[in-house]
């Protein structure tokens, strides 16, 4: 028996509505739980005071600063490296055995569990290079971890720029670098930014690799070689060790809100770029 096409069409539309609603629903539930359970314990004091008694009392100031430094450093290291690799792969070489090997390597790196990056960072940066549990060990480890994401997304964004625009730029007497800088990168900017956002998300939420390389000291990191604790690690320890679920939820709320703030800022910048180049 064959169902009437109009009925199937309506049914599929309805199912897709449900699927979309379900996805958003899960997200809303998670955020609501965090907000409901955490909001009561959040005030400016929580953000700007030091934790006391392992985090049972007080705030999360050192962790907040530690998170910002760690993520900012990793992004600062990973963006030029990743974007440079993507530009090299797309604009500066033809498809060869070499580029295929690089691409295969990048894809393999993307699939490695973060704990392995942590272990590598611990052995290489912390022990071998004698950097100790520190902001710099953590940042370098996270750099390697997020590099594949930045390379892949940047590459896709750059490939999506129409070839005709490159041809026009060359016909007007631009060199390959001028074409890349003035035409390709501005057009690819929204895609590249999306990759950076995904990377920030990954770095902010990372715990395993961070505990291995940056440690979990509750002091405020004041130099690159200081240990520290990120919000995600703080949340993990508060909840895992049963120190304080209230403070754990409050920390989670700070984490969620700051990721949201970064996203909003990024979209704002993106719209500025799009407005300029369209």
């Amino acid at each position: 028996m064959r169902l009437p096409p109009r009925f199937v069409n309506t049914l599929v539309a309805l199912l897709l509505d449900l699927v979309a609603l379900g996805t958003v629903g899960i997200l809303v539930v998670i955020v609501c739980v965090i907000v409901v359970k955490g909001i009561a314990y959040i005030d400016l004091n929580f953000l700007f005071t030091y934790p006391e008694d392992m985090g049972r009392h007080g705030g999360v100031f050192p962790s907040l600063i530690g998170t910002i430094f760690l993520v900012a450093l990793s992004i600062c290291f990973a963006t030029p490296l990743g974007l440079g690799t993507a530009i090299y792969l797309t604009e500066y070489t033809k498809e060869t055995m070499m580029t295929k090997t690089i691409r295969f390597g990048v894809e393999s790196l993307a699939g490695i569990p973060s704990i392995l990056y942590g272990l590598f960072g611990f052995i290489f940066f912390v022990i071998k290079l004698k950097m100790g549990w520190s902001l710099i060990s953590g940042a370098l480890t996270l750099t390697i971890m997020i590099l594949p994401t930045i390379i892949r997304t940047s590459e896709e964004a750059i490939k999506a720029v129409p070839r005709s625009l490159r041809i026009v730029s060359h016909s007007l007497g631009a060199t390959l670098w001028e074409t890349t800088l003035k035409v390709v990168l501005p057009c690819a900017a929204p895609g590249i930014l999306t990759g950076i956002m995904l990377s920030i998300g990954r770095a902010v939420g990372e715990t395993a690799a961070v505990i291995f390389t940056m440690g979990s000291s509750l002091r405020l990191p004041t130099s690159l070689f200081d240990s520290g604790r990120t919000l995600a690690v703080h949340f993990y320890i508060l909840a895992r060790e049963g120190i304080s679920m209230e403070k754990a939820y409050a920390t989670a709320l700070v984490l969620v809100v700051s990721i949201l703030a970064v996203n909003i800022l990024a979209y704002y910048i993106m719209h500025k770029v799009i407005a300029k180049y369209s």
Binding site: L165, V168, S169, H170, S171, Y277
Partner: peptide
């Protein structure tokens, strides 16, 4: 060489930017 020889293509290909910036590109 390409700065001495202008080329117009079959399809209009403005660069994604303002009219002024398109012409000032070269």
């Amino acid at each position: 060489l390409r700065r001495r020889i202008g080329m117009v293509f079959a399809v209009p290909l403005p660069l994604p930017r303002s009219i002024f910036d398109n012409i000032a590109y070269g």
